[in-house]
Design a binder for these strands. Sequence first.
DNA 1: TCGTATCTTTGCGCGCCTCGCAAATTTTGG
DNA 2: CCAAAATTTGCGAGGCGCGCAAAGATACGA
Lengths: 200, 200
Amino acid sequence: MGLRERKKEETRIALSWAAIKLTVERGFDNVKVEDIAAEAGVSHRTFNNYFSSKGEAITARHFDRAVQIAEELRSRPDGEPLWEAITNAVFARFALGMQEGERPADERWIAGVKLMTQHPEHRGEFLKAHMAAVDALAAAVAERTGTDTDRDLYPHLVAGAVGAAILAAIHLWLHGDAPAPFEELLRDAFGQVAAGLPTP
Amino acid sequence: MGLRERKKEETRIALSWAAIKLTVERGFDNVKVEDIAAEAGVSHRTFNNYFSSKGEAITARHFDRAVQIAEELRSRPDGEPLWEAITNAVFARFALGMQEGERPADERWIAGVKLMTQHPEHRGEFLKAHMAAVDALAAAVAERTGTDTDRDLYPHLVAGAVGAAILAAIHLWLHGDAPAPFEELLRDAFGQVAAGLPTP
DNA sequence: TCGTATCTTTGCGCGCCTCGCAAATTTTGG
DNA sequence: CCAAAATTTGCGAGGCGCGCAAAGATACGA
């Protein structure tokens, strides 16, 4: 990777990170695109060369990481049973970054994240990213199971269920009465889905 | 319902319908809010009293209908098994309006819908509406099964799986190789999910 | 029926956003 | 070291979302 591409990647990450940081600190509507650009050390106009909206910038890192789940799934050994492979792929690329620091998990930050997730525009953008990742996952599932995303419901249903499990875990993690570690919630969610959602 | 509320409802529907119609005919970016308002016979400013964005107006009807699924589920007899009740609720409120006319199902229209669903902003808004409906469904499922949306993963997982089934059916209906009637796709999707997604 | 209280619509205007364009700057590869 | 290619930036156009206050429509008791 040449200098050119490296710098682009750095700028992209700097912008995305600046967007997240400022939004969590001040709230979605109190951050101007100009502020984000300034924080990342580029011009307002350059921001829009990388992202077509504030929301997209905020979601970009989540999206980048989520898409990797599909890649990971492709690289799991062929013999591994489907649900096991999926669980492993998800944990390999998703769960880690969520619990291990990467950010200061202080009160103020969590509160800011909660606020952010409630903002309508962010919600839409987040779900767009989430579903794009789910689609990628469906493609990987299809490849693995010999099904076809344009012919069969199956890969979409599996990927969709996985996506729902992730969303459910996030929801309970952020809004649940009884606080539990994210990894545990996710593992529990996968267990239930893989077991066919038996009525409790 | 007094005259006041009736007129509001009419305006809301007229705006939403105008937004859909114009977008399908011309494409998302070639429709100005002003056009939609004109088509519905109100001012630009009034449009924003009803909807906070073009995308929201387009999605409103889908959303209104989708939320009714949760209401329908609540009104199903208590003895009915969960998956049966859900299937019935979905078909009662969702499937009907999809296949029966309501619109001219001509080529041009379908093509317009496809284009619309690919537009980024619409996608985000659509998913927002979809997930809001899924959340409502989760609440209804929780009520029915004696679980709690702030404590248990279960209702979210079930509702999410149902939502995924609906999305998968829509996807195959719009983009599938082998065209099939929507109702059939949906029924098939529900069957697979209810059966615990056995590997094919 | 009428008059007032309440809600809705509308025009105006501000500030922000996204994007096309072309000039300036930086990186690349020979 | 130079020319080609890619990236950044300023500028400006066209839209959008919303707060505000005036004007218009509806509701309802006397």
